[in-house]
Structure formats: C-alpha cells, structure tokens
Amino acid sequence: MSQTMPQQLADLLRARFAGHLSNVTLAHGQATVEVTAAHLVEVCTALRDEADFHFEQLTDLCGIDFLGYGEGEIPESDTATSQGFGRGVTGTTAPGRFDWAGRQPHPQILRRFAAVVHLLSFAHNARLRIRCFAPEDALPVLPTLTSVWPSANWYEREAFDLFGIVFEGHPDLRRILTDYGFVGHPFRKDFPLIGNVEVRYDPEAKRVVYEPVTSVTPRVTVARVVREDSRWLTSQTEAADDWKDN
C-alpha cells in the first residue's frame, strides 16, 4: 500500500482534470474538489480507473442545502434597540424559514443544493471529497453515480428523499428513510423542524389520521450566532503550547 499525501493528490488532480475542476482546496489535511454536474460521471470514472487515483470505494454521499449559510438568528449589535437584543426567533427569521431569494451573497456558495461525495482509495490510502452543485435551485438534478460505484444507490435515494435532489439515470429512485406517502423533503432548511403533519389515532374513525401540527410550536432554545472573532486564533496558539504550561 503506497501513501498519497493530500497535497500530492491535489497536484495530481490539478494536472489531470485541469478543465473540469473549478476548485481544488486543502483543509484539515483533506482534499476537496468541485466538479460541474456535466463532467461528474466522466471525472468519477477516471478517478476510479486511473492508476494515479484508483478510488475503488464511494464511502459516502450526502446532500446539502446551503440555504441560510452563515446567517445567525440574533440581530447584529448595531440593530439592537435600547431594550437589548431580541432573543426569541419568530416569523421569517426563524430557522428553516430563511429566504433563498433574499440571501446574503456568499463568494463560494452560488447554488443552493449540492451532493458531497467521499471517496476512498485502498491502493493509495487516500481520501477525496467531491462537491457537485446542482445547476437548478428549484429542481436540483444531478447525474447518478450508480454506474461508477454500486454503493451510490442507497446514498442517492437518501439524498433524493431528504433533499429532493433528483439523480438522473438512477435505476430505482424511491424514498428510503421517510414514511410511506410522506410529502416534502425534510432535511431542506425551509422544512420546519416540527414537521408539517402529526398523526394520532382517531377513535371515531377507528384509524390513524394525519393532521396539521398543533401539539407543538416552533421554538428555539439556543439562538444561532455566527461569531468571527479572535478566539480561535487564541485557542490554536494555546493548543500549540504544551498543555501543562497553560
């Protein structure tokens, strides 16, 4: 078993797929590439078959919804009133109710849905992460990877079920984790955490009935705050020190 270091892998990828990869990044010792949907299958087949890469296993595939990325739930300090910050989160500012059209533009995130694939090469003891954004936000469609790695089958069904990403060419794209007859895609950020329907046994109808949720209300126990401060710099310096001296 040879060992391909992440930096080496990133260089190899840049050299081999120059035109097809929009972004090759290294962070936390892991290589990430972004591939466009049109080139996904072609790039993946090469990654599996070529001796430099030889990624024999698709370890993981998951969907991700970038709605609300980097947005907090507490107003910024300049918007605070004399009564202080608003703690409760209600209305359209609550989690799961972020608005894609009115989002803050983010340099890296141009599309809403993406599939993230984790590959593993046994021959080179290397891992690679591929991110592929779906070109359409309203109806995310991506090509299937089932023809490249059979293990993609259930992972793509899961991403379809939870995020509504359609994998074109998938042999059996059915829901997998949610209930029979479930409506909606629950892991989308605009799907409420409490759900849309609740079930109870109706003694008169003598069966289980589905009704709009009334027994619980959306509630936030700890507000989401995004902090960009120097604390991590401090902690990194502290971590670099010996723990005994701290």
């Binding site: 892991q30 993981d60 993230v116 984790h118 401060d229 604390r231």
Partner: peptide, 30 residues
C-alpha cells in the same frame, strides 16, 4: 462555542466498520 467555518470528515473504525462524520460549519455555535 462557535466553530470556525469549514468542513471535515472524521472517520473511526467502529466495531461494525467505518463510522464517519461529515461536519460543515459556517462559523456558528450550531
């Protein structure tokens, strides 16, 4: 605590096989 923005995949050899956690943070406390 707020975790710096970024993404990572951490895997351990769990008794049943590779148990991995893919974590994406946008700099928030969640």
């Amino acid at each position: 605590y707020s975790v710096p923005a970024g993404e990572t995949y951490a895997a351990v050899e769990a008794p049943k096989g590779e148990f991995g956690c893919y974590l994406v943070s946008d700099g928030a406390n969640k």
